[in-house]
Nucleic acid binder design. Sequence first.
DNA 1: CTTTGAAATGAACGCTTGTTCAGATATCCA
DNA 2: TGGATATCTGAACAAGCGTTCATTTCAAAG
Lengths: 196, 196
Amino acid sequence: MARKTGSHAEITGPLVRQAAQRLFAQHGYAAVSMRQIAAEVGVQAGALYLYTPDKQTLLFDLMKTHLEELLTAWAAEPNGGGPQDRLEIFARFHIRFHLDRPDEVFIAYMELRSLEPENFAVIERLRHDYERELESILSDGHAIQSFRVPDIKLATMAIIAMLTGVNTWYREGGRLSRDRVERIYCNMVRRAAGAG
Amino acid sequence: MARKTGSHAEITGPLVRQAAQRLFAQHGYAAVSMRQIAAEVGVQAGALYLYTPDKQTLLFDLMKTHLEELLTAWAAEPNGGGPQDRLEIFARFHIRFHLDRPDEVFIAYMELRSLEPENFAVIERLRHDYERELESILSDGHAIQSFRVPDIKLATMAIIAMLTGVNTWYREGGRLSRDRVERIYCNMVRRAAGAG
DNA sequence: CTTTGAAATGAACGCTTGTTCAGATATCCA
DNA sequence: TGGATATCTGAACAAGCGTTCATTTCAAAG
């Protein structure tokens, strides 16, 4: 696969990350070789080491960047209103963000076991930071009896699993529009949380 | 890892499957070598080929067996009652069955991409057979207005994702008993389906 | 006690792996 | 134009891969 003509060296770095992302998502970290990534970029394997110290770091950076972008994007969402509004905003945000990045999401969920322990700890913390955002919404709603959830942590995990699950079946141009999917999931989440 | 003393050759086959299951679940199919599996069993790599034609078939058989057991076990559940009862039975069954087999479930969900196309097709069909069981419950309930679901297929996927998600966080001996988890999930599923 | 046949070994096959590095090449600034 | 600097090649390294197979081991059957 030849490189785009006219491409200068300073854009090879992003190309490497892009190629690694697609290949890791498709075949899995362990099943993809540095030579495959290099071929996708249009370069020899040795050249990759100008852009990453090793294969593991390549994976780690992809996952870290993804989760940091997730937290940043969530922080930029409107955060006014009561728990019910915030739950709806969260659900819609989660679906939108995840459907926009199927490869990143797939890697972040499937390649945790491919991370060396120190890297795993970093990623796990970031993921937990995000989960706590939903947890605090449910907790606030529980406090003022807007929601009926017997166990807040369990509800957090259940709702996130349900929302993230959309990535496993949704395909662009399918039977349902993204907006319709967002709306339906929103309703299910609200009801699962026992919202009035 | 030495074999249990007194073990005869006729039980090595199951041991191989067991070892492969644990290792595939922990590190992923591509990351596990035949030599690692053999070491776990207490045998040399060549001996594995008395029990499986190749590595791919080993994976395929694990997944196929898991899904067939899932379908068989579900068929053995009581299937009387209305959609509401059947939804509750399904939810409890799904959680119970999946929590009992964390390794199998992990492999069945994570290693789809490691299957060669023909094998993938077989597994995908089995999985779909199972999803259709829930779909028909929701469909029946929708027909007699016991459930309020704007889209049955979407609700099917959402509920299964939510239920299967329990495997990602539940740990034996944790804060919540299995029965309590079952009950809470049951309620969330009922409400998500819009059951009266 | 010998024969048989399954079970397991251990070496070997050709190939791929992640990573390194001396050398070639291209690009940019003076 | 010339020299410095960033970029990339291509070969090499040791190690590991899935798989095969002639040979050995060993318990049970005759």
